[in-house]
């Protein structure tokens, strides 16, 4: 029996669909990015303009602003989700009955992001529950969370954190549980404190897993869309207009598909450069 032929026959159907659903759209979107593909134009022809759309982005203050917002979103998100995710992972690793807790905290990460955002709208309403809890803690004024430019971004970050800290927790928990117990036992016999064990054994061994969990989160946050769409729609003003959302507005509100596509590919370039340096820095494979 010709094994090679079997190998290819098994792959062929998947390969055909991949060409249709992955490779062709990607190549086509590069083609669109290099044209003046503006659906508002009366013509049916979309002239080739080379890197025109890419150059335009560098002079587009909305685009540059959106990059800034995206970086802010990622920085705030990491600052909240990493400590929270790590803390909960350590806590769960010390519970013998954690298997009853894990399903509950995994639900957010599997929830449709649109629904997470919708919950955010209800909870962060000026007369909503979050402000009520804050009033119990002594905050007397009602914070207009997502309707004020000062707090809208952090509201979106909080929704994202509710949804995705469990991701970091689950990944780091798997990492902690894979540390051979002998290491910890040996340190304990030598008289190390719990804090010392965490700092000098657990944390260094977790470095690689933390790096992987973080890059997953950062890349996901770089393309955040759903939460922004439903909670603030980029507003108030442009306060939460992250780049992926801005590209949506350009493409599907102003119908400049060429420019929208170019913005998408600029994000891809930023992402690739970032991943390359990140992997070098943490020596992640």
């Amino acid at each position: 029996m010709n094994e090679r032929r079997v190998a290819y026959s098994l792959m062929l159907p998947a390969l055909m669909v991949l060409i249709l659903a992955v490779i062709f759209p990607l190549l086509f979107s590069i083609n669109v990015a290099l044209r003046k593909y503006d659906l508002r134009l009366p013509t049916e022809e979309y002239p080739f303009i080379g890197l025109g759309n890419f150059v335009r982005a560098f002079y587009d203050s909305y685009f540059l602003h959106s990059l800034l917002i995206t970086v802010e979103f990622i920085a705030l998100g990491v600052a909240l989700q990493l400590p929270l995710g790590l803390g909960v992972a350590v806590l769960l690793s010390k519970l013998s009955w954690r298997r009853y807790v894990i399903p509950a905290i995994a639900i957010p990460a599997l929830t449709p992001p649109i629904v997470a955002g919708y919950m955010g709208i209800i909870l962060f309403h000026p007369d909503g529950v979050v402000n009520y809890f804050l009033s119990l803690l002594g905050v007397s004024s009602k914070i207009p969370w997502y309707s004020s430019p000062n707090t809208a971004l952090i509201t979106c970050v909080l929704v994202d954190t509710w949804q995705w800290y469990p991701f970091i927790t689950l990944v780091l928990l798997a990492g902690i549980l894979s540390i051979p117990p002998e290491y910890v036992e040996a340190a304990r016999i030598d008289g190390a404190s719990e804090a010392g064990i965490f700092r000098h054994i657990t944390l260094p061994l977790l470095k690689g897993v933390i790096a992987v969990a973080l890059i997953f989160r950062m890349l996901e946050m770089l393309r955040v869309f759903d939460v922004i769409y439903i909670v603030t729609y980029g507003g108030p003003g442009t306060a939460t207009q992250v780049t992926n959302f801005y590209s949506y507005l350009v493409g599907f509100h102003y119908w400049d598909l060429g420019y929208a596509s170019a913005i998408g590919w600029i994000l891809v370039i930023i992402l690739s450069v970032f991943v390359t340096y990140y992997m070098k820095a943490f020596r992640v494979s």
């Binding site: 190998a7 792959m11 992955v22 062709f24 759209p25 990607l26 086509f28 979107s29 669109v32 593909y37 890349l219 996901e220 770089l222 393309r223 869309f225 780049t243 992926n244 590209s247 949506y248 493409g251 599907f252 598909l257 929208a260 596509s261 913005i263 998408g264 590919w265 994000l267 891809v268 992402l271």
Partner: peptide
């Protein structure tokens, strides 16, 4: 078949900014 490049491609597709496939699929 596929070697080590396959996992890389699979992961990078997941992180592709949504607008890229959206524009292509919309026009098609």
């Amino acid at each position: 078949i596929g070697g080590t490049t396959l996992p890389f491609w699979v992961l990078s597709l997941r992180f592709l900014p949504g607008i890229v496939p959206c524009v292509a699929f919309y026009i098609l």
